[in-house]
Amino acid sequence: MTDAREHLLDWLRDAHAMEQQAEQMLKAQAARIEHYPELKARIEQHIEETLGQQALLEGCITRLGSSPSRLKDAMGKVAAMGQAIGGMVASDEIVKGSMAGYVFEHMEIASYRTLIAAAEALGDQETRAACERILVEEEAMARWLQDHLPDVTRQFLERADTPGATAKK
């Protein structure tokens, strides 16, 4: 196997682990949201997209004669658990979670752009197509977060100023 193909496989395994991490983070965040129904609904939609992305990546990895990295997948899940626990203690959890989600989406976007370029360089049109499909979903989620972060922030501040209201989640 060529070094370039090994890099592609390694990056696909990284992306699979990243999607495992995203799934755990999104599920933890959605479970804790109580007062931001639009954000919760979009996160739940993205959980479904993330599960489909995992399947697409697994298909690419398997087609290339390998399997996802159990170690990388486990590390991604552990990192997500740490992020969820850290968010629970923040008084502005909903705002920080939204900001973190926006940043994470851009990391995913960079990863898929890299995978698309690598697949293209290797002539792997199936991997390229799968990653292009995933990229569209990640860009849509990043745009949604970008467009809605001001509203989430305003809603948080309004709830924070309301006596007896819980604003953080």
Score class of each variant (00 low, 15 high):
residue 117 A to P: 02
residue 65 G to M: 10
residue 40 K to N: 05
residue 36 Y to S: 01
residue 55 A to Y: 07
residue 48 E to D: 14
residue 112 Y to G: 00
residue 113 R to A: 02
residue 112 Y to R: 05
residue 52 G to E: 14
residue 24 Q to H: 09
residue 65 G to L: 08
residue 65 G to H: 05
residue 103 V to M: 13
residue 109 I to R: 10
residue 43 I to G: 01
residue 63 R to Y: 09
residue 67 S to E: 15
residue 19 E to L: 06
residue 14 D to I: 06
residue 111 S to D: 13
residue 108 E to Y: 04
residue 89 V to E: 15
residue 66 S to M: 05
residue 89 V to W: 13
residue 27 K to H: 05
residue 45 Q to K: 12
residue 28 A to K: 06
residue 47 I to F: 04
residue 114 T to F: 01
residue 50 T to A: 00
residue 15 A to G: 01
residue 93 E to H: 08
residue 37 P to H: 04
residue 101 G to L: 02
residue 20 Q to T: 11
residue 68 P to T: 08
residue 98 S to H: 09
residue 109 I to A: 03
residue 72 K to M: 14
residue 67 S to R: 15
residue 14 D to N: 10
residue 53 Q to K: 02
residue 114 T to K: 10
residue 75 M to F: 14
residue 87 G to T: 06
residue 61 I to L: 09
residue 84 A to H: 01
residue 80 A to V: 02
residue 92 D to S: 03
residue 37 P to Q: 01
residue 45 Q to D: 12
residue 96 K to F: 06
residue 118 A to K: 04
residue 83 Q to R: 11
residue 92 D to A: 05
residue 21 Q to E: 15
residue 21 Q to H: 13
residue 38 E to H: 12
residue 56 L to Q: 08
residue 75 M to E: 13
residue 102 Y to E: 14
residue 72 K to N: 13
residue 58 E to V: 10
residue 108 E to K: 05
residue 113 R to Q: 15
residue 92 D to Y: 04
residue 49 E to F: 08
residue 17 A to V: 10
residue 44 E to D: 07
residue 55 A to P: 03
residue 42 R to N: 09
residue 87 G to A: 02
residue 101 G to C: 04
residue 33 I to E: 01
residue 89 V to K: 13
residue 24 Q to N: 11
residue 62 T to K: 13
residue 42 R to V: 06
residue 65 G to T: 00
residue 51 L to T: 05
residue 71 L to D: 15
residue 104 F to V: 09
residue 45 Q to Y: 13
residue 56 L to E: 15
residue 61 I to D: 03
residue 75 M to A: 13
residue 83 Q to H: 11
residue 53 Q to T: 07
residue 100 A to H: 12
residue 69 S to R: 10
residue 106 H to F: 06
residue 16 H to F: 15
residue 47 I to R: 07
residue 88 M to R: 14
residue 35 H to D: 15
residue 52 G to K: 04
residue 77 K to L: 12
residue 90 A to V: 12
residue 24 Q to F: 06
residue 32 R to K: 12
residue 15 A to C: 07
residue 51 L to Y: 07
residue 50 T to F: 01
residue 17 A to C: 08
residue 112 Y to P: 00
residue 59 G to R: 06
residue 80 A to D: 00
residue 109 I to K: 09
residue 105 E to W: 05
residue 66 S to N: 14
residue 114 T to V: 07
residue 95 V to C: 07
residue 22 A to Y: 01
residue 15 A to I: 07
residue 17 A to F: 09
residue 55 A to N: 11
residue 102 Y to T: 11
residue 97 G to D: 04
residue 94 I to Y: 05
residue 106 H to A: 00
residue 32 R to A: 12
residue 101 G to I: 04
residue 22 A to K: 06
residue 100 A to V: 06
residue 52 G to F: 03
residue 59 G to D: 12
residue 89 V to T: 14
residue 38 E to F: 07
residue 57 L to W: 02
residue 20 Q to A: 14
residue 14 D to F: 11
residue 27 K to G: 02
residue 18 M to W: 11
residue 60 C to R: 01
residue 75 M to N: 10
residue 16 H to C: 11
residue 97 G to Y: 01
residue 107 M to E: 15
residue 114 T to P: 01
residue 32 R to N: 09
residue 66 S to E: 15
residue 54 Q to W: 08
residue 19 E to C: 07
residue 72 K to L: 15
residue 82 G to N: 10
